[in-house]
Design a protein around this nucleic acid. Structure first.
Length: 273
DNA sequence: CTTATTCCCTGATTGC
DNA sequence: TGCAATCAGGGAATAA
C-alpha cells in the first residue's frame, strides 16, 4: 500500500525520465470508470494530450505532475495502484487501467488490481490536497503544533496518525512502526499523549519515514517503484504484520488488534498506555 | 466541529 | 475438496 515513502520513491524515479516530455496519447480503460475524477475519462484524456511535463512533486500520498501552462495531473495510488515508466510500452498486465504515451516513445502505465486509484487534472491543486495536514518531512511539521492537534482529539492515537488532516502521508505501516519506536500503545487516546511522548512520536514518525524513503519503500503486497521493482523496508519493520512473532526488543509476542477499523500491530510490553 | 460506520474492489484466507 | 463468507485497507461519504 503506497504511503509517503512509496510515493516519494516513484516521484524521484519519474522526475528525470518524464520532465520535459509531452503527452502524445492517453487511454483510460472503460473498466476503470472511477479513475478519472471530476470529468469523464474521454475529457480527461483530451485535456492531457499535448501537455508538457514541467516537474513532478508530491503532497502526502498524492503525486503531483505539474504541466506547463499551469495544470496539474494528480495521481493517488490508494491500495493497489502502480505507476510505472516503460521505455517501449506497458507491461502485459491484466490490471493495466490506463496508459499515456510520451513524445520520446516511452510510456506512463497505470496498473490497479482493486481500482481504488484516482487521477485529477486541475488548475488548483488545493482543490484536491487543500485539507491535508503538514508534510512530516518538512519544517512545517512542528512538534508543538502536533501535540496541540493531538490534544484536541479523543480518538485512539493510531486513528489520529492515519488522519491525513493531522499529518499527510502516514498510512497503516508507518503508523504502527512510529508508535512502536515511540513506545506508545496505539489504543491510547490522542489527547492523553504527554508532551514528551508527543515529542518522541514526532521524532519517530520522521525517522521511520526517512529510513523507509532510503529503502525505496516497503513491498508487503502490491507496491513496486516506477521501474516495477520492490522496495526493501518491509524487511526491516519491527511490528507491522509480525503478529505472534517475538518483539525484537523484549521478545514478547507482537499483538494484533483493530483500531479505527484498521489492523494494528504492537508490542504489549514496549508500548504502554 | 467530532467519531463510527459503510462503501468501493478483488485476490487471498478462513470456516464449515 | 469445495464453496461461501470474511478480510485487507485509503479515503470519501454518510450517519449520529
Amino acid at each position: 500500500m503506497p504511503e509517503l515513502p512509496e510515493v516519494e520513491t516513484i516521484r524521484r524515479d519519474l522526475l528525470p525520465v518524464v520532465r520535459g516530455r509531452t503527452v502524445r496519447s492517453a487511454w483510460i480503460s472503460p473498466d476503470a470508470p472511477r479513475l478519472a475524477q471530476l470529468v469523464p475519462a474521454e475529457a480527461f484524456c483530451r485535456g492531457l494530450v499535448g501537455q508538457r511535463i514541467e516537474d513532478v512533486g508530491r503532497r502526502g500520498k498524492y503525486l503531483l505532475i505539474h504541466l506547463e501552462g499551469g495544470l496539474t495531473w494528480i495521481v493517488h495510488l490508494r491500495m493497489t495502484g502502480r505507476l510505472q515508466h516503460g521505455r517501449d510500452g506497458c507491461p502485459d498486465d491484466p490490471y493495466l487501467r490506463a496508459k499515456f504515451g510520451l513524445d520520446d516513445g516511452s510510456w506512463l502505465c497505470f496498473m490497479d488490481l482493486r481500482k481504488f486509484g484516482t487521477m485529477w487534472l486541475v488548475d488548483d491543486v488545493d482543490l484536491v490536497t487543500g485539507k491535508l495536514g503538514p508534510e512530516p518531512l518538512d519544517d512545517a511539521f512542528d512538534v508543538g503544533a502536533f501535540h496541540g492537534a493531538l490534544k484536541r482529539r479523543s480518538a485512539a492515537i493510531k486513528a489520529v496518525l492515519l488522519d491525513q488532516a493531522v499529518l499527510a502521508g502516514v498510512g497503516n505501516i508507518y503508523a504502527d512502526e512510529s508508535l512502536f519506536r515511540a513506545g506508545i500503545d496505539p489504543r491510547k487516546a490522542a489527547q492523553r499523549i504527554s508532551r514528551p511522548a508527543a515529542g518522541r512520536l514526532h521524532e519517530a514518525v520522521v525517522e521511520v519515514l526517512l529510513e523507509a524513503v532510503g529503502d525505496r519503500g516497503s513491498s508487503f503486497s502490491d507496491y513496486v517503484d516506477a521501474q516495477g521493482k520492490a522496495g526493501y523496508h518491509h524487511l526491516k519493520v519491527r511490528v507491522f504484520r509480525r503478529t505472534d512473532e517475538p518483539c525484537f526488543v523484549c521478545g514478547t509476542a507482537v499483538r494484533r488488534v483493530k483500531v479505527g477499523g484498521r489492523g494494528t500491530h504492537f508490542c504489549p510490553k514496549c508500548q504502554r498506555r
